[in-house]
Design a protein around this nucleic acid. Structure first.
Lengths: 229, 229
DNA sequence: GAGGCTAATGACAGCCACTGACAATTGACA
DNA sequence: TGTCAATTGTCAGTGGCTGTCATTAGCCTC
């Protein structure tokens, strides 16, 4: 394959189909090395007990270089989570336009969990991601940052759904409300999942489905009359 | 009044009914002075452009003293917000036990807004609180911290409601789900309110009621069929 | 009302996250 | 191969935050 240039002809065009050039490759390698080292340190020693210098040293670059790759310590910690959310948004975009919004959200999320390793596995082992998930959930600063980022993603999704349905987000509150409610359920799910020792991806999937089913009952008023098993 | 000691007899007992003693009074004064100066500076120059030294200097205490009164810069910024949330929890506790949970939440919040000045007014002018509200909403770090704190309050409320209804929070997901959904609506409301220039307390109250009414419609599937005015 | 006790404060010193500026190095491309 | 631009390391500095210790100032007892 790659029947492109025979040497010396349009090297940047060749790059586009073959490889990104040494410089780019090196950069990606450093970035991933920093990311992996950071997560490894965070998950073993804890986030607060890990300094940026330590991370940089583990990859053998200067502290300054670390800050050229990531906006800050929080950013490395949440980098994978960010990829995961982007993955969800992608799988939502892929949903058929006819599908009702909440249905689309539900399916997109469940499908997202099923294909999570496609989005994450190439960068860090999925198992490391899951461990980091718990660290985030149990580290106040990180949880805070994470909640804020989720809020941004929600806004993005609200706009997406509004467009799908031909509504104006600023005039009609329903898209934002629905997405916020959905996000709230997702957060309760994450929290619950992370509280269970050794819970894996399947557990996450099941919890998600179960909790989404419970929202209806939870909102229909009287909790004492219905199931109390 | 105060038929207590005629001098020299059990001064601490007298204190309990009259005043907290010079030391305590002085402390409260410093704390409030720091709080007010901080909010004043935050709302005029912005949170990021204000240093802790500046705040301390405005009250004429050392930076170290500032950190003895508040856990950090974020804490001053969110101190009033914290009082407000406690105020909501209180007004929820005051709800009649027979009331269905979501009904109680709704009424507690609306009532909370009506009596907000009781909870805040004695410490800072309500107007300053409202200005600070917007600063929080538009400052990423503060918004993050605020979201995390809200999550904690939600957990607290979920336990409260569960107890009221005789449920076990860890066995039955419905309390947490309902509270999370409710909280999500509140957040959308706050966000929307803060986006409107010069919106006052009444606007907040109205928005709250309106959005709570919209949740039902927002969740019942098809947005295209229903109102599109 | 003098003196002892303890809480509150100030003054350093130091850690860590983060940033700007400048010089040295190293791919990229002609 | 030499020029150009991107990447990196070094250094210096800011701001949030903490531990430590000496000093000050309410409080309480005799």
């Amino acid at each position: 394959m790659e029947t492109a240039g025979t040497t010396g002809t349009a090297p940047q065009a060749v790059r586009a189909v073959s490889r990104p050039g040494l410089r780019e490759r090196k950069k990606r390698r450093t970035r991933y090395a920093l990311l992996r080292s950071a997560l490894e340190l965070f998950t073993t020693q804890g986030y607060e007990n890990t300094t940026v210098d330590e991370i940089a040293e583990a990859v053998d670059v200067s502290q300054r270089t670390f800050f050229r790759y990531f906006g800050g310590k929080e950013d490395v910690a949440l980098a994978v989570q960010e990829m995961v959310e982007a993955h969800f948004v992608d799988s939502l975009r892929a949903r058929p336009p006819g599908e009702p919004p909440l249905e689309a959200l539900r399916r997109a999320v469940l499908e997202g969990w099923d294909t999570i390793s496609d989005a994450v596995g190439t960068v860090v082992p999925v198992e490391l991601y899951l461990r980091m998930f718990r660290v985030i959930e149990s580290t106040p600063v990180l949880l805070a940052a994470q909640l804020r980022r989720s809020a941004e993603t929600e806004e993005q999704i609200a706009r997406l759904l509004a467009e799908r349905e031909g509504l104006d987000v600023d005039a009609d509150p329903r898209p934002r409300l629905a997405v916020a409610v959905f996000g709230a359920v997702m957060r309760v799910t994450s929290r619950q999942w992370s509280a269970v020792e050794d819970a894996g991806l399947e557990a996450m999937r099941e919890l998600t489905a179960a909790y989404l089913d419970q929202v209806g009952p939870a909102l229909t008023g009287n909790w004492r009359t219905t199931l109390r098993r």
